[in-house]
Computed example of a mutant assay.
Amino acid sequence: MLTKIHANLSVSISELKRNPQAIIDDAHGEAIALLNRNKPTAYIIPAETYEMLMEMTEDLELAGIIEQRKGEKADAVEVSLDDL
């Protein structure tokens, strides 16, 4: 069975154990597929990439909430600026 690897770089767990920082440095910011018995078991990505993905996920969740609330009837009360 063929397994798709979602990275241009890959490394075995035993290689990673020898010198993890060298592997990360050699990737120059690209994702690394961590292989166990020649199958991807995890991906190593730069912290900045992970943070960006988390922000994008949060943005998508917020966009979903906004879309959901667009259809809701709001009990809005009109207030003049002078009343504030």
Rank of each mutant, 00 (worst) to 15 (best):
I44E: 05
K4H: 09
I5P: 09
G64H: 01
I44C: 06
E72I: 02
T3S: 12
I65L: 15
T41P: 00
S80G: 03
E61T: 10
P46W: 01
Y50N: 06
V11C: 14
A22V: 07
V79F: 01
D25N: 13
E78W: 08
E51S: 08
D59I: 08
A22G: 07
E30F: 06
S80R: 01
G29K: 08
K39W: 03
S10T: 09
D59T: 12
L84A: 04
L2N: 11
G64C: 03
E72Q: 13
L16K: 00
M56C: 08
V79A: 00
I66K: 10
A22T: 12
K73T: 11
K39D: 07
S14V: 11
L35T: 05
V11R: 00
H28C: 10
K4N: 07
I24A: 04
L84Y: 05
A22Q: 15
I32Y: 02
I65H: 08
E72R: 12
S14A: 13
E48A: 14
D75S: 09
Y43Q: 03
G64W: 00
L60F: 06
H28Y: 13
E48N: 12
S80H: 03
T41H: 12
E15M: 05
L81R: 10
S10G: 07
D59F: 05
D59R: 11
M52K: 11
E15R: 07
S14I: 09
T3R: 10
H6M: 07
G29V: 04
V77I: 15
D83H: 03
T57R: 13
